[in-house]
Design a protein around this nucleic acid. Structure first.
Lengths: 162, 162
DNA sequence: CCTCCATATGTTATTTTATAACGTGCACAC
DNA sequence: GTGTGCACGTTATAAAATAACATATGGAGG
């Protein structure tokens, strides 16, 4: 029922794996994986959907972990910088990384009906975009790729004739 | 000096061409190309860069064409819907379409140093992204592709050793 | 031990971006 | 002439993000 590639899956497992990967990465790189940062990542993993910064902040507030916007934004900055989470520009929202291990160029499939988001992989810098950039003398450092459309479930619901 | 593919070019020409294309499109489709809508497109074409809605609104205000946010947002909605302009999600800003004729899947090269934006073309729905979407049962309707990096000019300025 | 420094968090205030809701005017169809 | 749809005007507010400054903590070096 949850959108990881829009297919059901075991949350506990992917949450554990992602937290472990984050722990390991921080340990290896001497990063400070503080309670707030850890908790924000947990929240994103538990919900496993794109969440607004203020939605996350509400959860933190309930738990007494911080009550002002900068608290949430700083933790999210940390997670995004270290690729434990991604920002979905189209939604002004954040989502836990679904592929914590792989070095990746994330791309997202966003359902315009239910806002479910699936993370996948694309390499736009190869292909037409890379060619265009090179021709223009532009150096690509990062790419935002967000496809908007309809997820399998919403397509099915919109077509009752079957 | 202006970023259309980050290369200098003749503004007057591209502005004229874009306005003519918009006029023609509206005439053909029975769309109401009102003064506000027209003027917002002109502003975007004149500046030929990504502009925030409030920046545009300031210009409208100076000219007595409207003073409240919804005026600008409505005009921008119209222009974006009809593909006379695009929204750059990464910048929360808008830019006139650089290829008014071609049906296209726009992609953008955004300089993180000077915020210059070049419009180019990509077809992410073909390639890896399309394959991933198909595998997931996701129907892509539209794609946001925004590469962040450094434009030729800013790369040159950052490397004084040559 | 203590001081300096870097980093993380707490807090206040504000800025920036965007939309809801409702009213007005105008053109066109009937 | 009147209803209907569309664009625009206006007020108010919501939503997203950051600036600026204060406080705590923990390690490096004297």
């Amino acid at each position: 029922m949850d959108p990881l590639g829009f297919a059901p899956h075991d949350h506990r497992d992917c949450k554990r794996a992602a937290m472990a990967a984050a722990e390991a990465h921080c340990a290896r790189h001497g990063l400070n994986f503080t309670p707030v940062r850890r908790r924000v990542l947990e929240i994103l993993l538990e919900e496993h959907r794109a969440m607004g910064a203020y939605e996350i902040l509400d959860k933190l507030r309930e738990e007494g972990l911080g009550s002002q916007p900068p608290v949430a934004y700083r933790a999210l900055d940390f997670l995004v910088t270290n690729r434990f989470a991604h920002k979905i520009e189209r939604l002004n929202a954040f989502i836990a990384c679904a592929h914590p291990d792989a070095a990746h160029t994330p791309a997202f499939l966003i359902c315009r009906v239910c806002n479910a988001v699936a993370e996948t992989h694309a390499a736009p810098a190869r292909g037409m975009l890379g060619a265009a950039a090179e021709a223009a003398g532009f150096e690509i450092e990062q790419a935002v790729v967000e496809a908007v459309g309809r997820c399998p479930r919403c397509r099915a619901e919109a077509a009752p004739c079957h």
